[in-house]
Design a protein around this nucleic acid. Structure first.
Length: 638
RNA sequence: GCCGCUAUAGCUCAGCCGUGGUAGAGCAGCUGACUUGUAAUCAGCAGGUCCCGAGUUCGACUCUUGGUGGCGGCACCA
């Protein structure tokens, strides 16, 4: 006599054990039709699961995020079934859910083509029409291995053989297709309403580059056609914001074959860059950082001492000159230690915060480059804090405060924190790693914010906190970082004189707020869709005359604004005002100042905002006040 | 780096396979006319080593092949 309690608190009693689906049916046919799975006492289960004891139950439909997961996971099976109907020789491997969709990796003799994708999608539709029941079954590990061997599914055999113990495994069958899976899954193949295959690409078996390459087909699936459409619109929107496209359109920067992965900054792009840099310089000054500058070319031996050469030799550019090998610096830390090492340092000098807008070059693998986001030549807003062990936590806390404030100024209100701990390939003893990781954990806990642990992802010299921001498209971008390093200072001979006059090694904190200017500006362009706030805009205002008669007035107005430090220019071409407005609107200038006879007469300009809003006529002082206020607000969201 | 796709005018893109015969459009540019009130005035002109190399062919932007860059993933990311 199970008593089922529903999320709204109501309870129903049943004479005999019931399935999730039966409960849904007893509530109403509409719900039964929509039911995809259930959550019994917190655990996600199939709709066919039998409940025999008193339980809490939530019926999962497409409207739940769990329901969407179930749909996507099941859709991966649906796709695999379709692939094997069309290509019986294709072997299945894994097919998990990812953000917005799913993928499935296949081993096949050739690459799938876009035409194949269309054909697969069509067969998927047919299977949906067949409305095959999805049945769960349980097998022992050995039975499962035997079955997949028989089917010639070598990869599945490998997967099952790597599952430890003799635990029973669950399988899901729909028609002729069966797959190893934890589930849960939709009750039948008619449950799919909206899906689309989006791309095909190579992917290594088990994510290991030394393994063979499989064919990965990506798809997306939604609870309704409307949601699918919204998703596709979101993709289009993201494409419109692509910083590579906007960079060209707004004449900000370019790349060319002779310098792969290295940006050529144009005047307008460089203006944004310089504004960001000026801002960061001011922030650093206020927070007691000392700005320095160090060489681009440093003898290779320094990189050997620091430990970078042994791990990153293949990714460093090197230069030979007069029988000496130099590396073009791939990072700034060893150079900052050289600055620290000059002169005798006392504990009274600590914490010592050195900062550099450090130009770095790394030979990034060709396939990894992506516009400004991943380049071979970049400038970090790098900083190294030399301190004592006791000072770590306060320094990390101060850094986090600084970082949050900076991100807010750029319009990013949400920050995601992660702690990456010791990787396999590393320097330093386990005791030192214990200490470093603990100090970062303490610092994270002190922020009072949630954070996630990522084991094994730390730098080779120490653990790190990674600070990611969320842009307006909801995309997470890793930018800032702070890393504890007990090893490198010692390797490079950094010391200070302690209170008891003994020599001690300082702890070094590596830190960056933006990460790299290149990448951060790429993120800004996409976040604002090119509509840079007045603070960052390369051109803050444009003065447009109606006819030649107002030219002198416009030039004077322009000159006066420039004298106030604003970035403005005048467009006095003999063109219709509508033409000029269109052109500068497309160039995303925040303010357009129109001047005709009326304005000259009254000593004003007609102010039009980028979005088209008419702010009416303003005097010079009024407009200066407006623009000053706008600039002072930085890029903060309202 | 790996798998797949891709490269034509300053930009966005046709043409290319079936059918190999050295290229077209729109925007931008230049010239002229027009002196204009909030997202495109009209007319004319000019603009290309069809990414680079090799091969097949009487003949290659087109087919084959090698390179380079880019794109989508994967792997990597101090």
């Amino acid at each position: 006599m199970p008593k089922i309690t529903l999320p709204d608190g109501s309870a129903r009693e049943y004479e005999n054990p019931v399935t999730v689906m039966e409960v849904a049916e007893s509530i109403g046919p509409g719900l039964a039709k929509a039911a995809l799975a259930g959550r019994v006492n917190g655990e996600l289960v199939d709709s066919s699961t039998v409940i025999s004891n008193d339980s809490n139950l939530a019926i999962i439909t497409e409207r739940d995020s769990d329901g969407l997961e179930v749909i996507r996971h099941s859709c991966a099976h649906l796709m695999a079934q379709a692939v094997q109907r069309l290509f019986p020789k294709a072997q299945v491997t894994i097919g998990p859910v990812v953000e917005d969709g799913f993928f499935y990796d296949f081993s096949f003799t050739r690459a799938f083509t876009p035409e194949d994708l269309q054909a697969i999608e069509k067969v998927m539709g047919e299977i949906v029409k067949e409305n095959l029941t999805v049945e769960r079954s349980v097998m022992s590990r050995d039975e499962a291995v035997a079955m997949f061997k028989e089917m010639g599914e070598d990869y599945k055999v490998q997967i099952i053989e790597s599952i430890p113990g003799d635990e029973d495994l669950s399988f899901y069958r729909q028609g002729e297709f069966i797959d190893l899976c934890r589930g849960p899954h939709v009750p039948a193949t008619a449950s799919f309403k909206a899906f689309k295959l989006t791309s095909v690409a190579g992917a290594y078996w088990r994510g290991d580059a030394s393994n063979e390459m499989l064919q990965r087909i990506h798809g997306t699936a939604w609870g309704s056609k409307k949601d699918l459409k919204l998703f596709l619109q979101r993709l289009e929107e993201a494409e419109k914001r692509d910083h590579r496209k906007l960079g060209k359109h707004l004449d900000l920067f370019h790349f060319q074959e002779e310098a792969p992965g290295m940006a050529f900054w144009h005047p307008k792009g460089w203006s944004i860059y310089q504004t960001v840099q000026r801002y960061m310089r001011e922030v650093q000054d206020k927070n007691d950082y000392k700005e320095i500058n160090t060489p681009q070319l440093v003898d290779y031996s320094l990189w050997e001492k620091s430990g970078h050469a042994s791990k990153f030799a293949d990714e460093m550019f090197s230069v030979e000159s007069e029988n000496r090998m130099y590396a073009i610096k791939p990072m700034n830390c060893p150079c900052h230690i050289q600055v620290f090492n000059q002169g005798l340092k006392s504990y009274r000098d600590l914490p010592l915060r050195l900062a550099e807008f450090g130009s770095c070059h790394r030979y990034e693998p060709s396939g990894s480059m992506h516009g400004l986001m991943r380049v071979r030549s970049f400038v970090q807003d790098d900083g190294h804090i030399f301190c004592t062990e006791e000072q770590i936590q306060a320094e990390v806390a101060d850094f986090m405060t600084l970082l949050f404030a900076v991100y807010k100024d750029f319009g990013f209100d949400e920050v995601i924190l992660r702690l990456s701990t010791r990787p396999e390939k590393r320097v330093g003893s386990d005791e030192v790693w214990d200490k470093s990781e603990q100090s970062l954990k303490d610092a994270l806990n002190a922020t009072g914010l949630p954070w996630e642990l990522v084991p094994g992802e730390g730098a080779f010299y120490g653990p790190k906190i990674e600070c990611s921001l969320k842009d307006c498209m909801g995309r997470v971008q890793q930018c800032g970082t702070i890393q504890v390093d007990f090893s490198t200072p010692g390797r490079l001979g950094a010391q200070y004189v302690a209170e008891d006059s003994s020599k001690q090694e300082p702890v070094m904190l590596h830190r960056a707020v933006l990460g790299s200017f290149e990448r951060f500006i790429g993120i800004l362009i996409e976040h604002y869709a090119g509509d840079m706030p007045a603070w960052l805009a390369p051109e803050q205002a444009l003065i447009l005359n109606i006819t030649d008669k107002q030219s002198d007035y416009c030039r004077n107005f322009e000159e006066s604004l420039k004298n106030k430090g604003f970035r403005v220019s005048a467009d006095l071409r003999n063109e219709k005002i509508g033409f000029k407005i269109r052109e500068h609107t497309l160039q995303k200038v925040p303010y357009l100042l129109v001047v005709g006879d009326k304005e000259v007469e009254k000593g004003t300009v007609a102010v039009r905002k980028r979005g088209g809003e008419d702010l009416g006529a303003m005097t010079f002082d009024e407009f200066c006040t407006l623009l000053n206020q706008d600039v002072a607000n930085f890029g903060r969201s309202a």
